[in-house]
Design a protein around this nucleic acid. Sequence first.
DNA 1: CCCCAGGCTTTTC
DNA 2: GAAAAGCATGGG
Length: 303
Amino acid sequence: MCNISIKDILFSGQSFLWNVHAFDKDYYCSIIDSSPVFIKQLSGNEIEINSTRNEFYGVPLQEFIRTYFSLDIDTCNVFPETFLLSHPELWKLLEEYFPLRILRQDPFETMIMFMCAQGIGMHLIRKQVAMLTENYGEAIPVTFKGKSLVLHNFPTPQRLAAADPFTLSRCTNNNRLRAANIISASRRIVEGSIDLDSLRNKQMPLDELRLTLSQNSGIGFKIADCIALFGLGRFDAFPIDTHVRQYLGTWFKSAAALRSLSPATYLMMDAEARTLLNPEFAGYAGHILFHCWRKEIKKLRSF
DNA sequence: CCCCAGGCTTTTC
DNA sequence: GAAAAGCATGGG
Protein backbone atom coordinates (compact mmCIF):
# COMPACT_ATOMS: atom_id res chain seq x y z
CA MET A 1 0.00 0.00 0.00
CA CYS A 2 2.74 2.45 0.83
CA ASN A 3 6.47 3.03 0.83
CA ILE A 4 6.01 5.34 3.75
CA SER A 5 5.26 4.28 7.29
CA ILE A 6 1.65 4.18 8.39
CA LYS A 7 2.77 6.29 11.32
CA ASP A 8 3.68 9.12 8.95
CA ILE A 9 0.18 8.99 7.49
CA LEU A 10 -1.70 8.80 10.78
CA PHE A 11 0.56 11.19 12.74
CA SER A 12 1.41 13.83 10.14
CA GLY A 13 -1.01 16.31 11.66
CA GLN A 14 -4.06 15.59 9.54
CA SER A 15 -5.79 13.50 12.23
CA PHE A 16 -5.59 13.62 16.01
CA LEU A 17 -7.87 10.64 16.52
CA TRP A 18 -5.38 7.82 16.04
CA ASN A 19 -3.43 6.56 19.01
CA VAL A 20 -1.00 3.82 19.81
CA HIS A 21 -2.96 0.87 21.16
CA ALA A 22 -2.82 1.01 24.94
CA PHE A 23 -1.89 -2.66 25.32
CA ASP A 24 -0.01 -3.44 22.13
CA LYS A 25 2.33 -0.78 20.80
CA ASP A 26 2.49 -2.42 17.39
CA TYR A 27 -1.08 -1.34 16.65
CA TYR A 28 -2.60 2.04 15.94
CA CYS A 29 -6.23 2.38 16.93
CA SER A 30 -9.11 4.74 16.26
CA ILE A 31 -12.87 4.63 16.61
CA ILE A 32 -14.51 4.93 13.21
CA ASP A 33 -18.28 4.81 12.75
CA SER A 34 -18.57 3.83 16.44
CA SER A 35 -16.28 0.80 16.09
CA PRO A 36 -12.59 0.30 16.77
CA VAL A 37 -10.19 -0.13 13.87
CA PHE A 38 -6.68 -1.44 14.46
CA ILE A 39 -3.82 -1.01 12.02
CA LYS A 40 -0.41 -2.62 12.18
CA GLN A 41 2.56 -1.94 9.95
CA LEU A 42 3.84 -5.18 8.46
CA SER A 43 7.17 -5.73 6.74
CA GLY A 44 7.49 -4.28 3.29
CA ASN A 45 4.62 -2.13 2.21
CA GLU A 46 1.86 -4.20 3.79
CA ILE A 47 -0.48 -3.16 6.55
CA GLU A 48 -2.80 -5.28 8.63
CA ILE A 49 -6.34 -3.96 9.13
CA ASN A 50 -8.08 -5.42 12.14
CA SER A 51 -11.78 -4.89 12.64
CA THR A 52 -14.74 -6.91 13.78
CA ARG A 53 -16.92 -5.32 11.10
CA ASN A 54 -17.04 -5.91 7.38
CA GLU A 55 -18.62 -2.57 6.56
CA PHE A 56 -18.27 1.06 7.66
CA TYR A 57 -20.89 3.70 6.95
CA GLY A 58 -22.63 1.07 4.83
CA VAL A 59 -19.56 0.58 2.64
CA PRO A 60 -17.73 -2.77 2.44
CA LEU A 61 -14.51 -2.71 4.52
CA GLN A 62 -12.04 -2.94 1.63
CA GLU A 63 -13.80 -0.19 -0.28
CA PHE A 64 -14.04 1.98 2.82
CA ILE A 65 -10.31 1.62 3.52
CA ARG A 66 -9.55 2.43 -0.10
CA THR A 67 -11.55 5.63 0.19
CA TYR A 68 -10.36 6.53 3.70
CA PHE A 69 -6.70 6.30 2.66
CA SER A 70 -7.43 7.89 -0.74
CA LEU A 71 -5.90 4.94 -2.54
CA ASP A 72 -7.93 5.95 -5.57
CA ILE A 73 -5.58 8.91 -6.04
CA ASP A 74 -2.62 8.37 -8.33
CA THR A 75 0.11 10.09 -6.34
CA CYS A 76 2.19 10.47 -9.50
CA ASN A 77 -0.15 13.28 -10.52
CA VAL A 78 0.07 15.18 -7.26
CA PHE A 79 3.15 17.19 -8.27
CA PRO A 80 3.32 18.67 -11.77
CA GLU A 81 6.16 17.51 -14.04
CA THR A 82 7.43 21.07 -14.22
CA PHE A 83 8.11 20.84 -10.49
CA LEU A 84 10.95 18.36 -11.03
CA LEU A 85 12.56 20.67 -13.57
CA SER A 86 12.21 23.81 -11.48
CA HIS A 87 13.11 22.29 -8.09
CA PRO A 88 15.41 19.28 -8.64
CA GLU A 89 17.09 19.42 -5.22
CA LEU A 90 13.81 19.73 -3.36
CA TRP A 91 12.41 16.88 -5.43
CA LYS A 92 15.14 14.58 -4.09
CA LEU A 93 14.25 15.51 -0.52
CA LEU A 94 10.53 15.07 -1.20
CA GLU A 95 10.63 11.77 -3.06
CA GLU A 96 10.32 9.53 -0.04
CA TYR A 97 7.28 11.53 1.08
CA PHE A 98 5.35 11.13 -2.17
CA PRO A 99 3.49 8.01 -0.94
CA LEU A 100 1.99 10.03 1.94
CA ARG A 101 -1.79 9.77 1.89
CA ILE A 102 -4.44 12.32 2.73
CA LEU A 103 -7.16 10.72 4.83
CA ARG A 104 -10.80 11.29 3.97
CA GLN A 105 -12.13 11.95 7.45
CA ASP A 106 -15.50 12.78 8.90
CA PRO A 107 -16.25 16.47 8.28
CA PHE A 108 -17.66 17.27 11.73
CA GLU A 109 -14.81 15.55 13.51
CA THR A 110 -12.36 17.40 11.28
CA MET A 111 -14.04 20.73 11.96
CA ILE A 112 -13.86 20.35 15.74
CA MET A 113 -10.32 18.94 15.67
CA PHE A 114 -8.94 21.86 13.73
CA MET A 115 -10.87 24.42 15.75
CA CYS A 116 -8.63 23.14 18.57
CA ALA A 117 -5.50 23.85 16.48
CA GLN A 118 -4.82 27.54 16.99
CA GLY A 119 -1.34 28.76 17.81
CA ILE A 120 -0.35 25.77 19.91
CA GLY A 121 1.77 22.67 19.40
CA MET A 122 0.46 19.38 18.10
CA HIS A 123 0.82 17.62 21.43
CA LEU A 124 -1.61 20.12 22.96
CA ILE A 125 -4.03 19.71 20.06
CA ARG A 126 -3.89 15.96 20.55
CA LYS A 127 -4.50 16.41 24.28
CA GLN A 128 -7.54 18.60 23.65
CA VAL A 129 -9.07 16.16 21.18
CA ALA A 130 -8.45 13.24 23.55
CA MET A 131 -10.11 15.12 26.41
CA LEU A 132 -13.10 16.02 24.23
CA THR A 133 -13.66 12.38 23.29
CA GLU A 134 -13.18 11.14 26.85
CA ASN A 135 -15.50 13.72 28.39
CA TYR A 136 -18.17 14.07 25.71
CA GLY A 137 -17.89 10.93 23.60
CA GLU A 138 -19.85 7.72 24.09
CA ALA A 139 -17.91 5.05 25.96
CA ILE A 140 -17.16 2.02 23.82
CA PRO A 141 -15.85 -1.13 25.51
CA VAL A 142 -13.19 -2.74 23.34
CA THR A 143 -11.56 -6.13 23.62
CA PHE A 144 -8.51 -6.81 21.50
CA LYS A 145 -5.65 -9.28 21.77
CA GLY A 146 -7.14 -10.58 24.99
CA LYS A 147 -7.18 -7.17 26.66
CA SER A 148 -10.19 -5.03 27.46
CA LEU A 149 -10.36 -1.27 27.66
CA VAL A 150 -12.87 1.53 27.28
CA LEU A 151 -12.40 3.86 24.32
CA HIS A 152 -14.64 6.73 23.28
CA ASN A 153 -16.51 7.72 20.19
CA PHE A 154 -15.99 11.24 18.90
CA PRO A 155 -18.65 13.48 20.50
CA THR A 156 -21.83 14.03 18.52
CA PRO A 157 -22.82 17.57 17.45
CA GLN A 158 -25.81 17.28 19.79
CA ARG A 159 -23.63 16.50 22.77
CA LEU A 160 -21.21 19.36 22.14
CA ALA A 161 -24.08 21.74 21.35
CA ALA A 162 -25.54 21.07 24.80
CA ALA A 163 -22.25 21.46 26.66
CA ASP A 164 -21.54 24.14 29.24
CA PRO A 165 -18.84 26.53 27.96
CA PHE A 166 -16.85 26.69 31.18
CA THR A 167 -16.90 22.91 31.65
CA LEU A 168 -15.97 22.34 28.02
CA SER A 169 -13.08 24.80 28.28
CA ARG A 170 -11.24 22.24 30.41
CA CYS A 171 -10.89 20.32 27.15
CA THR A 172 -9.79 23.33 25.09
CA ASN A 173 -6.61 24.27 26.90
CA ASN A 174 -8.76 26.39 29.27
CA ASN A 175 -9.53 28.70 26.39
CA ARG A 176 -13.14 29.78 26.94
CA LEU A 177 -13.54 31.53 23.62
CA ARG A 178 -12.49 28.39 21.78
CA ALA A 179 -14.93 26.35 23.88
CA ALA A 180 -17.76 28.77 23.11
CA ASN A 181 -16.93 28.67 19.40
CA ILE A 182 -16.99 24.86 19.36
CA ILE A 183 -20.37 24.85 21.10
CA SER A 184 -21.71 27.49 18.73
CA ALA A 185 -20.54 25.64 15.61
CA SER A 186 -22.00 22.38 16.96
CA ARG A 187 -25.34 24.12 17.51
CA ARG A 188 -25.33 25.35 13.94
CA ILE A 189 -24.71 21.78 12.77
CA VAL A 190 -27.66 20.55 14.85
CA GLU A 191 -29.89 23.36 13.62
CA GLY A 192 -28.88 22.71 10.05
CA SER A 193 -27.53 26.20 9.42
CA ILE A 194 -24.26 24.47 8.60
CA ASP A 195 -24.79 21.48 6.30
CA LEU A 196 -21.40 19.84 5.92
CA ASP A 197 -22.76 17.17 3.56
CA SER A 198 -23.96 19.82 1.13
CA LEU A 199 -20.50 21.39 1.25
CA ARG A 200 -19.17 18.12 -0.19
CA ASN A 201 -20.44 19.31 -3.55
CA LYS A 202 -17.29 19.46 -5.67
CA GLN A 203 -18.93 22.03 -7.93
CA MET A 204 -18.66 24.65 -5.20
CA PRO A 205 -15.70 26.93 -5.87
CA LEU A 206 -13.01 26.78 -3.23
CA ASP A 207 -13.31 30.50 -2.46
CA GLU A 208 -17.01 30.12 -1.77
CA LEU A 209 -16.45 27.05 0.40
CA ARG A 210 -13.77 28.85 2.41
CA LEU A 211 -15.95 31.93 2.88
CA THR A 212 -18.93 29.82 3.95
CA LEU A 213 -16.96 27.91 6.57
CA SER A 214 -15.19 31.02 7.86
CA GLN A 215 -18.54 32.69 8.58
CA ASN A 216 -18.44 30.71 11.81
CA SER A 217 -16.70 32.27 14.79
CA GLY A 218 -13.49 30.40 15.49
CA ILE A 219 -12.97 29.36 11.86
CA GLY A 220 -10.68 31.49 9.71
CA PHE A 221 -9.25 30.82 6.26
CA LYS A 222 -6.65 28.33 7.49
CA ILE A 223 -9.02 26.16 9.48
CA ALA A 224 -11.63 26.38 6.73
CA ASP A 225 -9.06 25.03 4.29
CA CYS A 226 -8.14 22.24 6.73
CA ILE A 227 -11.79 21.21 6.97
CA ALA A 228 -12.02 21.24 3.18
CA LEU A 229 -8.81 19.24 2.67
CA PHE A 230 -9.06 16.66 5.46
CA GLY A 231 -12.83 16.48 6.00
CA LEU A 232 -14.44 17.21 2.66
CA GLY A 233 -12.00 15.49 0.32
CA ARG A 234 -11.11 18.80 -1.33
CA PHE A 235 -7.53 18.02 -2.31
CA ASP A 236 -7.34 21.41 -4.00
CA ALA A 237 -7.68 23.24 -0.66
CA PHE A 238 -4.30 24.56 0.53
CA PRO A 239 -4.21 25.41 4.27
CA ILE A 240 -1.47 27.92 5.09
CA ASP A 241 -0.14 27.83 8.64
CA THR A 242 3.13 28.95 10.17
CA HIS A 243 5.06 25.98 8.72
CA VAL A 244 3.60 26.34 5.24
CA ARG A 245 4.43 30.02 5.33
CA GLN A 246 7.98 29.15 6.31
CA TYR A 247 8.55 26.70 3.48
CA LEU A 248 6.89 29.00 0.95
CA GLY A 249 9.46 31.62 1.92
CA THR A 250 12.46 29.30 2.14
CA TRP A 251 11.87 26.81 -0.65
CA PHE A 252 9.92 28.95 -3.11
CA LYS A 253 11.13 32.49 -2.29
CA SER A 254 7.57 33.66 -1.82
CA ALA A 255 7.43 37.43 -1.28
CA ALA A 256 4.03 37.24 0.39
CA ALA A 257 5.37 34.77 2.95
CA LEU A 258 7.71 37.43 4.29
CA ARG A 259 4.92 39.95 4.88
CA SER A 260 2.83 40.00 8.03
CA LEU A 261 0.03 37.48 7.86
CA SER A 262 -3.43 38.82 7.00
CA PRO A 263 -6.39 37.59 4.96
CA ALA A 264 -4.95 39.46 1.99
CA THR A 265 -1.47 37.90 2.26
CA TYR A 266 -3.08 34.51 2.91
CA LEU A 267 -4.85 34.75 -0.44
CA MET A 268 -1.65 35.94 -2.12
CA MET A 269 0.25 32.88 -0.84
CA ASP A 270 -2.65 30.66 -1.89
CA ALA A 271 -2.46 32.06 -5.41
CA GLU A 272 1.33 31.63 -5.49
CA ALA A 273 1.04 28.00 -4.41
CA ARG A 274 -1.34 27.32 -7.28
CA THR A 275 1.26 28.50 -9.76
CA LEU A 276 3.87 26.17 -8.24
CA LEU A 277 1.65 23.14 -7.76
CA ASN A 278 -1.03 21.32 -9.68
CA PRO A 279 -4.09 23.37 -8.58
CA GLU A 280 -6.28 20.26 -8.50
CA PHE A 281 -3.97 18.72 -5.86
CA ALA A 282 -2.48 21.85 -4.29
CA GLY A 283 -3.45 20.83 -0.76
CA TYR A 284 -2.47 17.20 -1.26
CA ALA A 285 0.98 18.30 -2.38
CA GLY A 286 0.98 20.93 0.35
CA HIS A 287 0.60 18.30 3.05
CA ILE A 288 3.52 16.32 1.61
CA LEU A 289 5.62 19.50 1.65
CA PHE A 290 4.37 20.28 5.17
CA HIS A 291 5.32 16.89 6.56
CA CYS A 292 8.69 16.91 4.79
CA TRP A 293 9.44 20.43 6.08
CA ARG A 294 8.60 19.50 9.67
CA LYS A 295 10.60 16.28 9.65
CA GLU A 296 13.59 17.10 7.46
CA ILE A 297 14.10 20.79 8.24
CA LYS A 298 12.49 21.41 11.62
CA LYS A 299 13.59 17.98 12.87
CA LEU A 300 10.27 17.38 14.60
CA ARG A 301 9.98 13.69 15.34
CA SER A 302 7.24 13.33 17.89
CA PHE A 303 3.74 14.54 17.29
C1' DC B 1 13.67 35.22 30.81
C1' DC B 2 12.77 34.67 25.75
C1' DC B 3 10.31 32.71 21.45
C1' DC B 4 7.53 29.42 19.02
C1' DA B 5 3.68 26.20 18.38
C1' DG B 6 -1.14 23.60 12.09
C1' DG B 7 -4.79 31.07 14.46
C1' DC B 8 -8.54 33.69 15.54
C1' DT B 9 -10.87 37.69 17.67
C1' DT B 10 -10.69 42.11 19.43
C1' DT B 11 -8.63 46.47 19.92
C1' DT B 12 -6.02 50.30 18.31
C1' DC B 13 -3.88 53.40 15.13
C1' DG C 1 -7.87 49.73 6.00
C1' DA C 2 -3.31 47.44 8.38
C1' DA C 3 -0.89 46.39 12.65
C1' DA C 4 -0.75 45.00 17.50
C1' DA C 5 -2.57 42.92 21.59
C1' DG C 6 -4.92 39.08 23.96
C1' DC C 7 -5.83 34.37 24.42
C1' DA C 8 -3.47 29.83 27.11
C1' DT C 9 -0.05 26.31 27.78
C1' DG C 10 4.08 23.44 27.03
C1' DG C 11 8.62 22.94 25.17
C1' DG C 12 13.13 24.44 23.50
